[in-house]
Simulated scan of single mutants.
Amino acid sequence: MRPDFGAGSRAAGPGRRGAAVRRRLPLYAAGEIDVAYVVRGTDEAVDRDTWWEEHSHPTHELLWNRRGASSATVGARVWTITPLVGLWVPAGTPHAGWAPAGTVHHAVQFRARSVPSISGAPVAVDVTPLLRLLLDRLTAEDLDPGARARTEAVVLDLLAPSRNELLLRVPRSPLLAPIVAAVGADPAEATTLAGWAARLGVSTRTITRAFQAETGLGFSRWLATARAQRAVELLAQGGQIADVAELVGYHSASAFGTAFRRVTGVNPAAFRSR
């Protein structure tokens, strides 16, 4: 299941319609079912906040969004999926998902027996304009076999791990659980590292070491990444930059812009326009 880090505890926001729904899908091993296609994509417009409980596919899967931001969780790792950066999930990998109402997501399945995985573990993929066009072409029902095979070959040639993944590792230790819960409920949570140390009765060094051990990041970098994930969703829903900055805990749009760019590689305005 996705850690209750944000979506499950968020108040209703732009695009949310009705109660959230949960979907259950089976767990398949890689190649357990042999499919007739090499590459097949499907679109879905999500009309209600939706959770996909943990499942796995017999195929490799590329997830990306035509509109909005969603997330996928594998263990303690949470990836944010956008129109710019998708997620490759190798066949047989258990994962869970979350998408707010208004998201239009595109899931592409790749035949595991024909297509080698681009990575041994889930990895972000840049969804370039060319890749989008080629994947769109493969949805055409009247595409002749030769043209389909050539298009599939170019798609496979373009797929490569991205350097711009928005990945958050969620700590699981009891020591850090209060911090994870507080930031998940409100990314603008303003308690400092020293403040958390006082509340938890430990030293700042203890908290820092725990974050480094579990996430590879210090407290400040981890918090900035958590805030950036929430900001991506709000911007994708049409939120104004100044409003989003305040909602995720920054006192100015410029400070927010600097932190957002450091995590995502683009500034909020560029992300929002694209």
Rank of each mutant, 00 (worst) to 15 (best):
M1F: 10
R2E: 13
D4R: 14
F5M: 12
F5S: 11
R10E: 10
R10D: 11
A11H: 13
A11T: 10
R16W: 11
R22S: 15
L25D: 14
L27F: 14
Y28K: 03
A29Y: 09
I33L: 15
D34I: 12
V35D: 12
V39C: 14
V39Y: 07
G41F: 03
G41H: 08
D43R: 15
E44K: 12
D49W: 03
T50I: 05
W52K: 08
W52H: 07
W52F: 13
H55I: 03
S56P: 02
H57T: 04
H57Y: 02
E61Q: 15
E61I: 14
L62P: 07
L62S: 06
L63Q: 11
R66H: 11
R66M: 08
R67V: 13
G75K: 08
T82L: 09
P83S: 07
V85Y: 10
L87W: 02
A91R: 04
G92C: 05
P94F: 08
G97C: 06
W98R: 06
W98K: 08
A99G: 09
A99K: 03
A101P: 04
H105F: 04
H106P: 02
H106S: 13
V108A: 07
Q109M: 10
F110H: 07
S119Y: 04
S119T: 07
G120K: 13
A121V: 13
V125F: 00
V125G: 05
D126W: 04
R132P: 00
D136H: 05
R137M: 12
T139P: 08
T139H: 08
A140S: 12
R148A: 13
T151N: 09
A153C: 01
V154N: 06
V154W: 11
V155W: 04
L156E: 09
L156F: 08
L158I: 09
L158K: 05
L159I: 09
P161Y: 09
V170K: 08
P171V: 02
P174R: 01
L175Q: 08
G184L: 05
D186K: 09
L193N: 01
A194E: 12
W196V: 04
R205M: 10
A213Y: 10
A213G: 13
F219I: 01
L223T: 14
Q229S: 13
Q229A: 12
R230V: 02
A231F: 00
E233C: 03
Q237N: 13
I241A: 05
I241K: 07
A242H: 14
A242L: 11
D243M: 04
A245C: 04
E246L: 11
L247N: 10
G249F: 00
A253K: 14
S254I: 04
R262M: 06
F271V: 00
F271M: 00
S273F: 06
